[in-house]
Design a protein around this nucleic acid. Sequence first.
DNA 1: CAGGGATATTTGCAAATGCATCTAAATCTG
DNA 2: CAGATTTAGATGCATTTGCAAATATCCCTG
Lengths: 160, 160
Amino acid sequence: MNDQSPHDPPTVPRLGEMGLANYAPYLMNRIMGRYNASLRDEMVGLGLSTPKMRALAVLSVIEAPLIRELAVYSVVEQSTLSRALDQLATEGLIRRAADAADSRAVRVHITPEGRAAFETLWPRMADSYARMFRGIGDDERRAFVGTLQKMLTNIRKHEI
Amino acid sequence: MNDQSPHDPPTVPRLGEMGLANYAPYLMNRIMGRYNASLRDEMVGLGLSTPKMRALAVLSVIEAPLIRELAVYSVVEQSTLSRALDQLATEGLIRRAADAADSRAVRVHITPEGRAAFETLWPRMADSYARMFRGIGDDERRAFVGTLQKMLTNIRKHEI
DNA sequence: CAGGGATATTTGCAAATGCATCTAAATCTG
DNA sequence: CAGATTTAGATGCATTTGCAAATATCCCTG
């Protein structure tokens, strides 16, 4: 079944040869699809959509980003994020503030209420995380994360 | 800053302590967000949405699955998939056929035209894949995929 | 420093999505 | 084996999404 003579340039392997179960993007989509769906199901009870949850999570870690930065970190379209921020602001979980240096730009601040909301949702995220890595040792996890970091560098468009 | 006395049970680590860049689900969402977006941009020219592209990819590898199985493999909601299959059928890329044993069930067959369509889009997927793993050796990639397989087993809901 | 892009964000609107529901068929239960 | 329950898939409908356009501001160039 090998139709390649010894000195041909390497051809693109076929998906069928590799098999779905060895194709990393497929596995990653499967895993994140389930991870995100199960998290989303838990969040509806708290009145949080995926964009809102992600924005809060990022804001718990990154101080007063611009909206376009927050969109990159949150992996949410900027227009979708803009509307999610409307809701979060109405609920008092974040606050928009004009940037000092650039009056077009808006920085997003998490409020104490927002931080408290994240504290209640974080354990659920941590549970999903723990479940995901069940039976996977520290060394293996560290190596895995190291590879992910390389991949993000390879694939990302923005410098952030 | 360590407020934990020596004999407390371990608490859940905080996202801020770990940092986004070490939090695997974050990295995986970032990576797949970009991977899927760039693939989607390439596919619009071919008249393929993400659900249609994924269904075709899975069908190139898995023979005549049930629609609900295809939904799991494709990581697409079943109702969304149902409509994507309508389009693919209209375009002659797939064919729905009643299951022999269960007349509620529908099996999805890829047509020769569908296979040809996948052959034209596969090189783009392969390019994205290659780019993603640029600078990552075979051993590291194999270890990475091995970890992904464990994670999928940990997190999946269905046996498939 | 005026004019022409470029950039940050919001918003209008059409398309896509997904939940809930519907129909049909299979399976279970007393 | 009749009726109740579950399962497969399609579809109505309200919500969400994301592209494109609008607005406001900034920056570069001559």
